[in-house]
Design a protein around this nucleic acid. Structure first.
Lengths: 288, 288
DNA sequence: GGGCAACGATACCGTCAGGGTATGGATTCG
DNA sequence: CGAATCCATACCCTGACGGTATCGTTGCCC
């Protein structure tokens, strides 16, 4: 199977419309129809149920959609990482445009640990320049998979660490963040049940991996900063790792939640990484 | 990047010889040279240092070799799983030629657990036919990655479970297997130090993932059956999970090794698997 | 040191896969 | 029932890819 065929199929499977898919791919519709037919013949599998009005995925088509996306990610990763390896091999000094290492972390996650890590790593004699990518929640895995990042900071149990190598860095409890002066802030600690249904202060909704939001009450948020803003406005409350207290503004207060799941920060990298720089960074992180 | 280019590059990078690589690919040498040059131009990276006598990988080339192999595995997996999905969708009865599920396990591993698992799963109303592939040690991950298997039984800490979803099934200690009548068999238990250097009974050498054997003393073995044979012949001793005692022949004896690492049997599957059958099998396994 | 063998690069050519345009056939909707 | 929509088919054309022949360089060995 060629990646071109995979790209074509994924486009059609996502659009469920040959015309739009062809447009997206920058080709005409007939060659696309032909390519899909040829792919189906070669695989010996019907991938799409199509009438002249509607296109639907078959079971085999659904399999190829998920597997094909993973395969295309792997190909993209190979390309990106090779390009970067070539750049950092020539421009040995590693100017800002040529990072030796790309680290992905959630936007607005606690930066204390990251700052310590970057400092400690930069102090190593073999350190290479590190670029930090801030991404949406649960996006780190994608970046590692398609080669846009070499290493990431994840937070269990929120982020999945499957198919990644990881090293635990720290574990912490969680606190509920409330507007200053809220009655609950007088308490020394609370339980999840105390905050599940606070009047006027719902828990927020985070985007799913596909970018859409689950239905339900609560405001939609994209990062921790937005959420803090909403809490300050009295529109939501937040359950966050306790390290967020260190930089809490005056108009917010935090109370430990005894039965909230512990959050573990881990450093993760793709399992087949052979990069010297990744290994150094991970070793540095493990020693913090 | 097209998979054809990747296949070409991987062939050259493995052979380090354009002529042989071309032969292996079933094409002539000149088109292969051209394809690699074109790939290098498009990536903007020198992948191979070549003189007219020798070919060597550059740093970027080494990256593309590992990343490219992973990508090709992913593409192969997509193809195989799609084919299988199509087959099991049409031949719904699932004749023996059309397994709904392929399970990989080490040849000669203890089959007790597997037998129980297969029985329990077959009793489920939604069960599909399961094909069992016996493979060499540490080969299961490869089979899962390139789609030849859907699910595997692994043994930690011997097999790596990175990039896989897993569920623990059982944990057991290890025993040393010796020829019956050996002085140590009189002991109730031993320690690793007692057996590290038994005269005439070295520990065996297992193949590395690439199929070669590490240097050193001890016979080369490919599976547990071979090893037992060698022990019976008085040419080796073996440290194995204690479940192997259940089918130990008369001429062998086993003694618990107190400080050997515990062996955990886990069931593993590719992280993006959406297969109903895999989920059912895993659930069945977890309930055993 | 010169002839030779090995090996990758280059030159040149033919073929067919893949892309484009025009059009057909089926289904839905007003 | 006509019109619009949408996928499939027919047909042509270009260029990418593969093959053969040959060159240039580099070790090697007598």
């Amino acid at each position: 199977m060629e990646t071109r065929e995979l790209r074509y199929f994924v486009a059609v499977a996502e659009e469920l419309h040959f015309g739009r898919a062809a447009q997206r791919l920058g080709i005409a519709q007939p060659p696309l129809s032909r390519a899909i037919q040829q792919l189906e013949r070669r695989l010996g599998a019907v991938l799409l149920d199509r009438t002249s009005r509607t296109v639907a995925l078959t079971e085999a088509g659904a399999v190829l959609l998920t597997e094909g996306r993973a395969a295309l990610d792997a190909v993209d990763a190979a390309e990106r990482r090779t390009r970067r390896a070539a750049l950092s091999a020539t421009g040995r000094t590693g100017g800002p445009g040529h990072p030796g290492l790309v680290l992905a972390t959630k936007a607005s996650a606690s930066n204390e640990l990251l700052a310590k890590l970057l400092d400690a790593y930069a102090a190593e004699p073999v350190a290479v320049p590190v670029e930090v990518i801030l991404c949406g929640p649960a996006e780190q895995e994608r970046l590692l998979r398609d080669g846009r990042a070499d290493v990431a900071l994840l937070h269990r149990p929120f982020d999945s660490t499957a198919r990644l190598h990881t090293e635990e860095l720290s574990t912490e409890g969680q606190v509920v963040v409330l507007p200053a002066g809220h009655p609950l802030t007088a308490r020394a600690h609370v339980h999840m049940a105390d905050i599940a249904d606070l009047p006027g202060l719902p828990l927020p909704r985070w985007p799913k991996p596909d970018g859409t939001y689950p239905p339900g009450p609560g405001p939609q948020v994209r990062d921790h900063g937005q959420l803090m803003q909403l809490v300050a406005l009295g529109r939501a409350c937040a359950v966050s790792p306790e390290s967020c207290r260190s930089r809490l503004p005056d108009d917010l207060a935090a109370v430990p939640v005894l039965d909230a799941p512990k959050v573990t920060t881990v450093i993760a990298w793709p399992p087949h990484s052979r990069s010297r720089a990744v290994a150094d960074l991970v070793r540095t992180a493990a020693r913090l």
